[in-house]
Amino acid sequence: MAEAIHYGFMQRALLAGLIIGAVCAVVGVYVVLRGMSFIGAGIAHASFGGVAIGFVLGVNPMVTAVLFCLLVAWGIGAVARRGEVREDTAIGVFFAATMALGILVIGLTRGYQVDLYAYLFGSILAVSPADLWMSVALGVVVLATVGVLFKELLSITFDPEMAEVTGLPAGRLHYVLLALIALTVVLSMKVVGIVLVSALIVTPAAAAYQLTEDFRKMMALSVAAGLFATVGGLLLSYWLNTGSGATIVLLTTAVFLVALALSPRRRRRRSGTPDAG
């Protein structure tokens, strides 16, 4: 344990892990309750296109990924809002298209395949000091936004139509939520990987949902599960010499299964007692 901490790469990975665990867990609460899991996966895969463009242009891929993900997230939102294409259809189209764009662009430029593997599946070694700062900055932006717009995001998640009727700018708030998902994906991708990041957004919140009927408690439990999974997963990945993304995601899945087994919601449903009061 102690020796792991002495390596610079491990310190950076753990610090990044703390931010990733907290941010994914917080944003995940909205994603789970609003039924946006598929959007999360779609945006995550879209980041591959952004990373590829970064490689080609010789810019830090996280920067291009931020811009690209925001564009795709808002694009999905805009197309779905017009109502002519269903949201899941829009995601299905963008999902594949952006992935394909990434593969095409990478194919045009040789020699980066090894780095690319880290982006796809996450790597404990991949977090450079610049990446860490970028993750900190994005994490602060996401958490501060949630802090300021706490009641607004709760309202559009609970009942978007009512949010609009009570006078909140529900449409714009939905775009804010999409942007938060995009930023969360990008700040997590170095450690967790593009392919696995949506699981880290959804699973801690899904575990917390099983354990409480209070929104704030759900967020706190989700953060606890997220931090446990990222920090625990990174340490396990170091000791077992396994991929960091996969280890983190499997650990959070284990947490979810335990929560499911302990769930008062599930027990109540099983025993058939309808409701108190």
């Binding site: 039924g35 009641k151 607004e152 009570t166 006078g167 929104f215």
Partner: peptide
Amino acid sequence: GISNFPVRVRDVVMMGRYGRIGVGRRP
């Protein structure tokens, strides 16, 4: 979807005033 949402009665009732309270402010 709403019937399983983890939120309390008082929070839901307060949502009726969110537009009046204003974006970014607390009740």
